[in-house]
Design a protein around this nucleic acid. Sequence first.
RNA 1: GGCCUCAUCGUCUAACGGCUAGGACACAAGAUUCUCAUUCUUGUAAUCGGGGUUCGAUUCCCCGUGAGGUCACCA
Length: 478
Amino acid sequence: MSKPVRTRFAPSPTGFLHVGGIRTALFAYLVAKQADGTFILRLEDTDKKREVEGSAEHLIESLKILGINYDEGPDKPGDLGPYRQSERLETYQKWAKKLIESGRAYADPYTPEEVQVFREDAQKNKLPFLYRNHRPENPVAWDGSKPLRFKSDPKGYKWNDAVMGDLSTGPEVIDDFILIKSDGYPTYNFAHIVDDAEMNISHVIRGQEFISSTPNYLNLYEALNLDRPILATMPHILNETGNKKLGKRDGAKDVLDYIKDGYLPVALVSFIATLGWNDGTEQEIFTRDELIEKFSLDRVGRSGAHFDTRRLNWVNGHFIRQMQIDGLYNASEKYWPDEAKSSDESYKKQVLGLIQERLKFLSEIPELTRFFFKDLPIDLSLIESNKQLKKIDKPELADLLSQSVKQLEQSDFTSADIQTKLNSLLESTNQKPAVLFSIIRVATTWSPASPALADTLAVLGKDKAIERLNKSIAALSQ
RNA sequence: GGCCUCAUCGUCUAACGGCUAGGACACAAGAUUCUCAUUCUUGUAAUCGGGGUUCGAUUCCCCGUGAGGUCACCA
């Protein structure tokens, strides 16, 4: 019998949640859900200096928007809370006492400046810094005014990581790290081990930056007589350019920025999941339910993956194309250009239907739809840059448009009937579609691109289409 | 500098030690009565280097090289 699966995402509220953090959260969520387990959000707010106002809320909102729902968390009480480390200080004290009593923790007598001198000495000699080389022989009793240190038991470790496989290190990486800081807060190194034990966490899933401190955690598990959870280390997500870990300073956007740009939560989830993971088949896109069913830690890659916006665009476009028009309309609410404010819902839905297949993300809606809502200025350079139209005189173009007006005035302006009229115009004018359709398209939209001509005209409506044609005829006749 | 980890097309990746190293994004060309896009077809493009082990190495081992992480009273 294996233990119930309980995973957690344990961010510190020190900034915004970016894609790397989300992926760790997502994978922890998937591991829990596929085993009918529990996913927990725990805020690691033990560094009051670095805490950023509002970041806890931002983090929670990001998870909610993506549907990475936790069963227990700061705003979702469970039996093993509280889920904010700053509210668990007595617990850490309790566990610290155990270590003191068993002789595995002691007061650090040095000032930060003194420790810094040790550190600089080590660096000068090109040696890694080890505090335990300066471990005091008869430490004073710990009264909370000094940091409390772990008395480590240096030795080599071999362990298994669910993603990275078998890992090993020698005793030289084991050190006496700080358990409780002089401000009374525990360090991450101590707090997360205590909390994972108290909260019955079965899998610890976290980023690569923790891999080198893992042997120290193993040492602490032993001192505390704890079974260690399954460990899984995620490689970093790298910036698009270069090999740097994705980070704010390199222009990485946080998750809510992507939502604002009109990336769909389902698309973000699918894209992020396949950044470093695949199910071994040729499937490229996954729904949440498929991820829950198919995800496994042992198929997560071991090397860092570059974030690729072009691939994200493709995934997002794929999901947009799959949407029903009502769903897309609801999602598009905030993205319409100002000119569309007065237009009614059914008109906007028709417009949306025409641009759906070329939409990569929702904030493209204004540039793709503006001409449906507003007469754009006449721009003759659109004719000059068209390789068919630039060969033809303006009067001749005006004449083609006049004939078009005559035909279209006879139309009931369904898309099908417009197409019929356009076809008969091709015959009567003896023109190629490349010429006739191009000039009508330009004259009715004055945009570099638009959906299929008959559809565009049908949605635009008879009055508007004819009005624009006449205006364009006038402009070309000057 | 010590320690740890990683390494397949530009990018994300697949390949019990065994087909011609597969797919996707991107890119290019063609088709779909006009543009942009979609869709379809086709194409360019990769096993970091050197040694082993083996009938056979992307895969296992060693040595290089490159990249990343870590060596905080940060997480």
